[in-house]
């Protein structure tokens, strides 16, 4: 109660200080606060906290973790964790086809798969690790994720069966459709 009485008292004082005949010329209290005027209520995050949260992989490979895998080990992981939805050798089943369709983008019925469409191999790792398998996402180890990624790249004829995928090699994989993407930001060439 005392607090509110004080507030009323302060308000009264403020009103008395205002010139009676002039418009109030205090700060603009609109939503455009400009820089450095927020209440600054964030807590600085530690490197450990950030490392635990930051799962995204940049197209240059930044963020790829340690570990490695090949299509040979990936086939076994795929059979257990992926096949039920995506079919034998990525042919598609309940859910998306992952393999084939190469060269179809310029035809009349494009078939979009990891091999025919996806422009970056890093995205395959990033997406599998964050979102797959659908019913229990985020449960593949980094080794398993590298292996399944290698398996899908192998099935699409992009790498060899025994080629090791890791933080260095995965970022260097050239996806077949990479050069067929055009940035539409900031300027859309095809508005």
């Amino acid at each position: 109660m005392l607090k509110y009485l004080c507030l009323i008292g302060m308000l009264g004082l403020a009103l008395q200080l205002l010139p009676v005949t002039q418009a109030y010329e205090g700060p603009d209290l609109g939503p455009d606060l400009g820089p450095d005027l927020g209440p600054d209520l964030g807590i600085e995050a530690t490197p450990e906290q950030i490392a635990a949260w930051d799962i995204s992989i940049a197209p240059d490979g930044e963020g790829l973790p340690s570990g490695s895998g090949t299509a040979i080990t990936g086939a076994a992981v795929y059979a257990i964790r992926c096949l039920a939805c995506h079919g034998h050798e990525g042919a598609g089943s309940l859910n998306n086809r992952l393999v084939g369709g190469h060269g179809s983008m310029s035809g009349s019925t494009p078939i979009r798969t990891v091999g025919s469409y996806w422009p970056y191999a890093t995205t395959v790792f990033d997406y599998i690790r964050r979102a797959m398998p659908y019913n229990l996402s985020g449960t593949l180890t980094n080794e398993e994720t590298y292996a399944v990624t290698a398996y899908l790249l192998f099935l699409n004829g992009i790498i060899d069966e025994d080629e090791i995928m890791d933080a260095q090699t995965l970022a260097q994989v050239q996806m077949p459709n990479r050069d067929n993407f055009v940035l539409a930001y900031p300027d859309n060439p095809d508005p």
Binding site: N180, F181, V182, Y185, P189
Partner: peptide
């Protein structure tokens, strides 16, 4: 057959 990205 080319594709636009970030057509926001």
């Amino acid at each position: 057959g080319s594709s636009l990205m970030f057509t926001f």
